[in-house]
Computed example of a mutant assay.
Amino acid sequence: MRVAIITESFLPDVNGVAHSVVRVAEHLVSKGHEPLVIAPNPAMMTRRALPVTDYPVVRVASFPMLGYKDFRLGLPVPKIAEALDGHQPDVVHLASPFFLGGRGSVLAAQRGLPTVAVYQTDVAAYARLYKLGWGEATAWKWIRTIHNAADRTLAPSTAAAEALIAHGVSRVWLWRRGVDVERFRPDHRSEAVRRSLAPNGELIVGYVGRLAVEKRVDLLARTSRLPGVKVVIVGDGPARKDLEKAVPDALFLGALHGDELARTYASMDIFAHTGPYETFGQTVQEAMASGLPVVAPAVGGPVDLVKPDTTGVLVPPEDAGALADAVADLVADDERRIEFGRAARAAVARRSWAAVGDELIGHYAAVVAGPGVPASVQMAA
């Protein structure tokens, strides 16, 4: 099968959309399919870091998003149509479509190509937070237009699916994300890493993710002042300087990758997720695969991932006190904390990228075969 993936973000960007596209493309190649990725050009300073891939990547002109210059928006240039016509895809995959994906949707329709649109970013919330000049209602109108033009929309969580349906999107299916259960695993725990992060023997409470306003990492300030706790923040982004002031007791490691990231995850004791706008929560899955109990807000993607009193604790969103109290309870109860971590690993052990990749290929095959599936939310396992 020939697949054109039109994505709003791709390597060297570090975010959930880019990571998901990479894993999908890799899986397609491993199964003998032929993916093409169409993505925005990164900023000039990072173009030297463009990766070498086993599949073609077409880069199109881009510009920085107003209010969030680290994220670039692809322009609807003729190069997109040329790439589609050259690849002759059987299906078009729109990854978190909005700007570039919106143009891709139109071009696919003009060519009679079946499309699968993957909803992954709460653009409407970002429009409100970053005051982008077009409001939340306008953002939802555009999301509805793009997704209702697709043959099938894939949502990463029940909360995301319900939000799409509530805003008038039809033909919504549930497609969760995979996790690398071989890379992220408890046996990567390192006493040397633990000593370097918490030399006084504190329990390590970790956060991994982009440092941006919407992630609400500032909520960890109260947690960082708990006795016997060391908050470790992994990641980078536009809010880092402000966060270093807001959470001065935390240790900021910057962005980590590969085996170093896996060792750092496994060397933590508790994972604290703070963002209230997650459509899924990939770092929550990675932490669970690493054998960590998770404290996360009871909203969005984490509601599907964290089973209260089994794999972690769900707290009211944007409540720093509730977050700190939940962490303190786990810090005080070694047996409960360790048992939650074991259960967390078991809960994600079968969510490999290969398994969800095969599921995605099934969605491709269904839209290529034509209509016939009821327009409702399909709660896939």
Rank of each mutant, 00 (worst) to 15 (best):
I5Q: 08
T7Q: 08
V22H: 15
E26T: 08
H33S: 13
E34I: 03
M65V: 14
R72K: 10
P78Q: 09
A81R: 13
A83W: 02
L107C: 09
A108R: 03
A108T: 02
R111H: 15
T115R: 09
Q120D: 01
Q120L: 03
Y126N: 11
G133V: 14
G135L: 07
E136R: 14
A139C: 07
A149G: 10
D151K: 02
P156W: 01
S157C: 05
V172R: 00
W173Y: 15
V179Y: 00
V179C: 02
R185D: 03
S190D: 14
L197H: 02
G201T: 00
V208S: 01
V217M: 11
L226S: 00
G228W: 02
L256K: 13
E260V: 14
A266K: 13
G281C: 03
Q282T: 12
V284H: 11
A287C: 09
S290W: 03
P302Y: 11
T311Q: 06
L314M: 07
V315F: 11
D319V: 05
A320M: 00
D329E: 15
D329M: 06
E335T: 12
G341K: 10
A347C: 05
W353S: 05
A366Y: 02
A366C: 10
G372Q: 10
A375R: 03
M379I: 09
A380S: 14
